[in-house]
Design a protein around this nucleic acid. Structure first.
Lengths: 229, 229
DNA sequence: TCTCGAGTTTGCGCCGGAGCAAAGACGCCG
DNA sequence: CGGCGTCTTTGCTCCGGCGCAAACTCGAGA
């Protein structure tokens, strides 16, 4: 391993000199959490920035009415809490471990200091947040203009990307996600998701189960996501 | 005027020393555009960062199917194009002048150089983009969980904030926005917007017109936005 | 192995909102 | 001052998706 795990695929740490990377790494400590537990809660004062090492985490928001929505799903190498730690006062989302997880944690003040010392890091941070903003805009547009079936197909494809594991019968989404979770990712209800997934199953696109899915024909899903009949 | 216009309310330029501000200002040049014309188009290589001096601009995206959506509306002092110029390759949105407008323009490479030299500026940039991300998340959540009437009420209130001008009969939204524009801001259709606004008008909340609205009772709108009967 | 409970499916009814069509109301320009 | 194009309103219809209720399924733990 020529690069430490924490620096891989993290835009934030791209093209930094090894010495700087080592300095950054030294400022972090590892924090572990069991499935279902929180790294931090929504609305809590933002204190830290994280990079997930192992496991998976979902970032959620709760509406004033109590509906929950899932903003994003994370796997190893993904960073979170950054937006808040860099800029805001409180975490705008909560971070819940979906499976047992461990993440590197940097206090926000440390990051600020590091950025002050290494402009490159700050510039990377801009890129990092900008990237996220771009993706969210994309999702926003889809939510505004596409119907539920397409959004669900897209969500499943994204899950395949992020947590797919090849098995004999197809690609297993290796995360314990319920229908309700998928509903919260796509801005709909668990009923509608269940119906849509049943339909996909009837069409042979996938194989559903209790908090479990195996995608058999991702091309078919892609056709639905891109509205090719 | 103790601060130049371009530096007011722009998170990006907060708490910089006058000398640095002057250096930044010197790197910009002013660009003017008539109503309806573009500062840049969606998908165009991202080259510049802008701060609007006068007029108003809307940032739009077009779906593959050709539906347009309005991501954001800008007034004097608002920055745009930043996300792309800092991080991305192309502009993820198009910027169209709603009224005759003028904006300061910085080439992306200049900004990168300035940030390299002044870490404070880079750190501000992170805050700036983070702030935007936060607001977009908010809107995303509302789009996912709230019904159209509430979203329209919210959009109108936002417009009052941004472009409201007190007149005898209430607060005029001082921008030529059509029903369709509002539909594109709220993820719905012009028909539905028209119906909802007619209803608001019948309830005495506002006074509609051709590309024109006067809000008479913003408290009433607030109640609808926050679902208080 | 049995039981319990969380997660899932499905029937049913309702309704918010989409979308077409056509009529109306402005405001602008000749 | 008249005509035209753009924006707006409104009737009508249709249907996607919501949400309750109830049955079912499966896995975990006793």
């Amino acid at each position: 391993m020529d690069q430490p795990v924490f620096a891989k695929h993290v835009t934030l740490f791209a093209s930094l000199e090894p010495m700087v990377l080592a300095e950054i790494r030294a400022a972090a400590h590892l924090r572990s959490t069991g499935a279902g537990a929180l790294f931090f809660a929504e609305g809590e004062p933002a204190s830290s920035f994280f990079v997930l090492e192992t496991g998976s985490v979902k970032l959620t928001q709760v509406t004033p009415e109590g509906h929950q929505i899932v903003m994003r799903l994370l796997g190893p190498g993904d960073a979170f809490g950054g937006v808040a730690a860099f800029g805001g006062a409180v975490y705008p989302v909560g971070a819940e471990a979906v499976t047992d997880s461990a993440a590197l944690e940097w206090p926000g003040s440390t990051m600020a200091m590091l950025m002050e010392r290494h402009p490159r890091l700050a510039i990377n941070a801009v890129r990092f947040v900008a990237e996220r903003l771009y993706l969210l805009q994309e999702q926003f547009r889809q939510l505004a203009t596409e119907r539920v079936e397409r959004r669900v197909a897209r969500a499943l494809l994204r899950l395949v990307e992020q947590a797919g594991r090849r098995i004999e019968s197809g690609v297993l989404i290796d995360l314990p996600l319920s229908r309700d979770d998928i509903a919260q990712m796509t801005g709909t209800t668990l009923y509608t998701v269940s119906r849509i997934i049943s339909r996909f199953e009837a069409e042979g696109l996938l194989e559903g189960g209790r908090q479990r899915m195996v995608i058999r024909n991702s091309q078919g899903l892609l056709n639905i996501a891109d509205d090719i009949p």
